[in-house]
Simulated scan of single mutants.
Amino acid sequence: MIHKSSIIKRLIVLVFVLVSAHSMAQQDPQYTHYMFNTLSVNPAYAGQRETLSVVGIHRSQWVGIDGAPQTQSLGIHSPLRNERIGLGLNIVSDALGPAKETFVDANFSYTIPLNANDLKLSFGVKGGLHILETDWSKGRFQNPDVVFSDNINRTSPMVGAGLYLHTRKWYFGAAVPNFLQTDHYDDYIESVATERMNFYLIGGYVFNLSETTEFKPAFLVKGVSGAPIIADVSANFWFQKKLTAGLAWRWDDSVSALAGFQVTPGMFVGYSYDMTTTGLNNYNSGTHEITLRFEVKRLGRILSPRFF
């Protein structure tokens, strides 16, 4: 027999998970390391690292809660020879409860110099596929309702666009990852729903504090009709172009500690830990995110690590 207090505890956890999932309902996958994964936010960023760049991210959210989000992302992008055109590929796998969503998209950017002070404007477009799969045998879906009688496997097209204004010291971008309606799994209603358009704003500025230390505040704002705005603010220091350390805050959700190390000019490793600031904090041991970035020296050019 299950003790009454155990039942009450499970119900409390369930309520917090549903409320937290509802606050992110119809939002794309989120990252604490968004400042190192800009291609996933804005297609106009393709090629802006000025070399072949490969970024992989693994995110385990709300560790200790069954069915909590698990996200893997792989982004590859590079400029072409004339450096005005950039190409990229982004692959994301996002699992939540009984559902798994896969995003595969190709990115194209074109950059226009605006003045002699290195101010540039990049235009980007993306196109790809969104795959939704459900397995109702997972979790608490032991329900005779016909809604859960058949698993789902749906593929939908995606078309998005973005703008990216930038110099060597700062950047500002706006993007819509997908203009088309697609189906996604909504954990709040425990069913499939139609996803609305997401809107992204991203920006950052690099301050030179000394010859060896740089400071970069950055932000990411995500909005979608019918759900609360999600705002991320971060502040990272970069020491000797080797070590990064900083803090981040997600509005009404979590605070995070970030660290990273430039192992070689072509290899960067980063880690972040998120601590939930809602009542859900009592039922999980936090969120972990690991980032790996590999970059290749271009012929005739020295590979110099950059902050963004």
Results as ranks from 00 to 15, higher is better:
residue 6 S to F: 05
residue 8 I to D: 15
residue 8 I to F: 15
residue 10 R to V: 14
residue 11 L to Y: 12
residue 13 V to S: 09
residue 15 V to L: 13
residue 16 F to N: 14
residue 18 L to C: 14
residue 19 V to P: 07
residue 20 S to H: 09
residue 24 M to H: 11
residue 24 M to E: 04
residue 25 A to N: 08
residue 28 D to G: 08
residue 31 Y to A: 03
residue 32 T to I: 04
residue 33 H to T: 00
residue 33 H to F: 01
residue 34 Y to R: 02
residue 37 N to M: 07
residue 38 T to S: 03
residue 44 A to F: 00
residue 44 A to D: 07
residue 47 G to F: 01
residue 53 S to W: 13
residue 54 V to G: 00
residue 58 H to R: 10
residue 58 H to N: 04
residue 58 H to Q: 03
residue 59 R to W: 13
residue 60 S to T: 13
residue 63 V to N: 13
residue 64 G to R: 08
residue 67 G to F: 03
residue 69 P to M: 08
residue 70 Q to Y: 07
residue 71 T to V: 09
residue 72 Q to K: 02
residue 82 N to R: 14
residue 86 G to Y: 01
residue 93 S to F: 08
residue 101 E to L: 01
residue 102 T to G: 09
residue 106 A to F: 12
residue 109 S to F: 01
residue 111 T to R: 05
residue 116 A to D: 15
residue 118 D to K: 11
residue 118 D to N: 09
residue 119 L to P: 14
residue 120 K to V: 10
residue 134 T to R: 07
residue 136 W to I: 01
residue 140 R to N: 15
residue 143 N to Q: 05
residue 144 P to D: 07
residue 150 D to K: 12
residue 151 N to R: 04
residue 155 T to L: 11
residue 157 P to N: 02
residue 158 M to I: 03
residue 161 A to Q: 02
residue 165 L to N: 04
residue 167 T to S: 12
residue 169 K to G: 05
residue 169 K to Y: 04
residue 169 K to T: 04
residue 169 K to Q: 06
residue 170 W to T: 06
residue 173 G to P: 02
residue 181 Q to F: 05
residue 185 Y to L: 00
residue 190 E to T: 07
residue 194 T to I: 15
residue 195 E to C: 15
residue 199 F to C: 12
residue 199 F to K: 07
residue 203 G to D: 01
residue 206 V to H: 06
residue 210 S to R: 11
residue 213 T to V: 15
residue 231 A to N: 11
residue 236 N to P: 06
residue 237 F to M: 09
residue 240 Q to E: 09
residue 240 Q to G: 14
residue 241 K to R: 13
residue 241 K to G: 02
residue 243 L to M: 03
residue 244 T to V: 04
residue 244 T to D: 05
residue 245 A to N: 07
residue 254 S to C: 03
residue 255 V to F: 04
residue 260 G to I: 08
residue 267 M to V: 15
residue 274 D to T: 00
residue 280 L to W: 05
residue 280 L to G: 08
residue 283 Y to G: 08
residue 283 Y to R: 03
residue 285 S to E: 10
residue 286 G to W: 14
residue 288 H to M: 09
residue 290 I to P: 07
residue 293 R to M: 08
residue 298 R to W: 00
residue 300 G to M: 09
residue 301 R to A: 05
residue 301 R to D: 02
residue 303 L to D: 02
residue 303 L to E: 02
